[in-house]
Amino acid sequence: MNRTRNLLDEALDLNNDNKGSRVVVIEDCVETSGAFVIHHLIKRNLSLPSSLIVFVAFSQPFSHYERILRKLGCNLVMQRENGRFHFLDMLSMQCPDGEEDKLCEGGLVSLYGKIQKAVEVSSSTEGNKNSVTIMIDDISLMEVAANGSSNHALDFLHYCLTLTSDFGCTLVILSHEDVYSNMEKPMLMLQMEYLADVLIKAEPLATGLATDVHGQVSLLIYFLTVVNRGRYEKGSLKTKTSNFQFKIRDNNVECFYPGSQT
């Protein structure tokens, strides 16, 4: 089980200590949810010492994640009390209508403020070793909360991006591809693909539904020009593509290369 489990980690290069700051974009669709990658990354990050997650939830309440993570063997309530899992419940968030300038009240700006505060606190108290991951589930609902303005959502993402370069955070964004399928040019998706260092796509199998395989994940790592706190790392340019299929089980997700499952 451990071997197959590591496939996703391997593809993401998480086993490497040198993580660097990066942007991970997960694209999924109605038929195949990519939420399992989020759950996996939560568990993975919390199992590392001195790491912190700031979770911005637009789609599900805390109890949902708590239940799933408990099945995966991770106690979110405890982690939240320890201050390693910041959960920002945004289910009821609504940006006020009207002038853009008035967005400053109660909208995305204050949300960003909360994130920045959490990141700053963690990096000031426990030294620089803390690796902070900001997760957003999901960006399409954030766009809805921002009154359908993808520009505002992108502004918000840009500010989160400045945190990745200032504090070495990782940014994980989930988005739904098919929400924009009627648009010729989904600006938000394209912009995010430009931002992404790692792009994960979850799709259903082309051959249709199967009992043994739930879907297919393709993973594109574009180029890692890692900038670590003012250090321009040479030799970090790399493109990597992995394709594998997965099956969601009760308490874990099994990943395997196509054809390797008997």
Binding site: A11, S218, F223, L237, K238, T239, K240, T241, S242, N243, F244, Y257, P258
Partner: peptide, 14 residues
């Protein structure tokens, strides 16, 4: 071909 056939592909230049 990578997207359709290969499971893992890595390269260090573009």
């Amino acid at each position: 071909t990578i997207l359709e056939n290969l499971s893992l592909h890595e390269q260090n230049s573009c």
